[in-house]
Design a protein around this nucleic acid. Structure first.
Lengths: 248, 248
DNA sequence: CGGGACATTGACGTTACTCAAGAGAGGTGG
DNA sequence: CCACCTCTCTTGAGTAACGTCAATGTCCCG
C-alpha cells in the first residue's frame, strides 16, 4: 500500500509507448515488446523547474536522461568561470552521454523552462541492451549521432563567421522543432542571447548585431525571444557552402 | 592452400594481444579469452601510405578502424572547399565512430605518414559485443570519450585565443605520445601548419606566429616539424582555466 | 642540384570584442 | 494594480586579435 504513494501518478503514464517523441528517442527501432521492457527501466519521471540543475559536472553517472518535455542546455565551466555551452536539448534527445566515458558527468545540465525527463539507469540500460540487440544498436547510433553533431559544431566554430553561425543556429532549431510537430518558421527561443553566444563562440552583443543583420536582409524577424523566419531559402543560402544541408 | 597466399604474413601476427597499444584500444577491460575472440574479427591489417585515404565522407560504413601504427587526420569538407579537421589520431585510437549514426562515413580519413590499421567489421563487432558485455561497455566508453574530446575542442574554439589553442594542442599531443611510451617533451609533428590551423580554427600564418610567441616566451622550441617543450608548466599555466591576460 | 611544397615574417584590413549607455521586459512587493 | 527593481536586450564607438595578401626563406624529394 505505502509503495503507491510516491509514484502512483507517474507509474500509470510512465511508458515510452505513450510518449510523443518515442520515435526520436531511445526506443527508435524497437518492437512493441522491446519498448515495454525498456519502460521497466524508467521508474519515475522527474520534473525540473526552469533554471534548475539536472546534474553537475563531476556528479557520478547514475542515469542518462531522456528529455520528455521542455528543454535544457548543457555546458562546461572553466576554472575562471567562463562557460562553453555544448548543446541545447529538446524532447526526444538524450542527456548525459558524455558521462559514460569516466562514469562522471563532464558537463552540467540546466532546464531552460519547466521540463520533464525520463531517467534511465545506465547500468540497467547496458544490461538490458545485452539482451536486446536493437536497443544496443539504438544506443550506439545515439552516441554516434552526438559525435556527428559535435563535428558540425566544430565546422561552425572553425569556419563560419558570426552571421553564418547565427543563421545555422536558427535553421537547426527550426528543423528540430519541425520534426517535433511545431512550426518551422515561427518559434520561441528558450535561451538568452548570452547563452546563444556561448554556444556559438560569440559575445552576446555579436548575437544582437547578427540578429539585426538578418533582419535588415529581410530574412527573419526577431522580437525578444520570438522568432519568425521570413526567408528560409535565404537563410540556407547564407550558410550554403560552409556546411551540407542545414545542420546535423 | 591458395587461401594462405594473401594473409599468411599477417594472420600470424594479427592479434590484439600482441599489439603494443592494446590497453589503449578496443580490448581495454577484456579478459584474455575475450581478446582472443575479438581477434577473430580482424581478418587482415591494412597498410595505408602517407597521404592516402582510408575512407571518404559518404562511403558506406563497413568497418571501424583501430590505428595500429602511424597517424591519421580526419576532416569534413564544405561544399566550397573549406576543410575542418576534426581530429588527429594515433595508435590505439578508433576511426569511423561518426559513421555508426547513418551507416555512412561523415568525414574522411587520411594517413599523415605510412600507417597501419586494424579494420573491425562493424556488424560483426556489434554481434560479438552482444555476447561479450565488457566489449560492449568498452565500445560505449570509446564513443563517449570521443564526445568528451569534442566538447573540449568546442571549449577551445569557443573560448581560447590563438596562443592558448596552440599551447593546448601541443600539450595534448605531448600527453598522448607519453601514454604511448614516447617522450613528452620532444617529438615530431606529422601534420603541416595548415592542418594544425584547420584543426584549431586558425589560419596557418596564425599558427606560425603562435609558435613564435611561445618560442619568445621560452616555452618551446620548434624547428620545422621538430618540437621541443622547454617549460611544460609554463605551457599549462598559459591555458590553466582558460585565463589570459587581455582576452578576446 | 633544382624545383615545388611548406614555413616564416611583415604590412595592412576586417571582424568580432570591450566598454558603455540606455531601453525594454518581467517579476515582486507594497 | 502600479511602481520599482533587476535582468535582459539593443546599439554605438573604439580597439584588439586574427585574417589576408605578399615577399622571402627553407626543406625535402626526385
Amino acid at each position: 500500500m505505502s509503495e503507491i504513494k510516491l509514484s502512483a501518478v507517474h507509474s500509470l503514464k510512465t511508458a515510452c509507448s505513450n510518449c510523443s517523441v518515442m520515435e526520436l528517442c531511445l526506443p527508435l527501432g524497437l518492437t512493441g515488446q522491446e519498448v515495454a521492457r525498456l519502460d521497466t527501466l524508467i521508474v519515475q519521471r522527474v520534473k525540473v523547474k526552469k533554471g534548475a540543475t539536472l546534474y553537475r559536472a563531476g556528479d557520478p553517472l547514475r542515469s542518462l536522461f531522456a528529455v520528455r518535455i521542455g528543454s535544457f542546455k548543457t555546458s562546461v565551466l572553466s576554472i575562471d568561470g567562463r562557460e562553453q555551452t555544448t548543446g541545447f536539448h529538446m524532447p526526444g534527445e538524450m542527456l548525459g552521454l558524455d558521462a559514460i566515458s569516466n562514469e562522471l558527468h563532464a558537463c552540467s545540465a540546466f532546464a531552460l523552462e519547466d521540463s520533464e525527463v525520463c531517467p534511465v539507469h545506465f547500468s540497467q540500460l547496458e544490461k538490458l541492451a545485452q539482451e536486446l540487440p536493437s536497443l544496443q544498436h539504438s544506443l550506439n547510433k545515439i552516441l554516434s549521432r552526438e559525435i556527428v553533431r559535435d563535428h558540425d559544431m566544430l565546422m561552425m566554430l572553425g569556419n563560419m563567421n558570426s552571421d553564418e553561425r547565427l543563421a545555422a543556429f536558427l535553421l537547426n532549431l527550426s528543423q528540430r522543432l519541425s520534426l517535433r510537430g511545431y512550426s518551422s518558421s515561427n518559434f520561441v527561443l528558450k535561451m538568452r542571447r548570452e547563452e546563444i553566444g556561448s554556444y556559438l563562440g560569440l559575445r552576446l552583443e555579436t548575437i544582437c548585431r547578427g540578429i539585426a543583420h538578418l533582419r535588415d536582409q529581410g530574412l527573419v524577424e526577431v522580437s525578444g525571444r520570438d522568432v519568425r523566419i521570413h526567408d528560409m531559402e535565404g537563410l540556407k543560402q547564407l550558410i550554403a557552402g560552409c556546411n551540407r544541408p542545414p545542420l546535423r
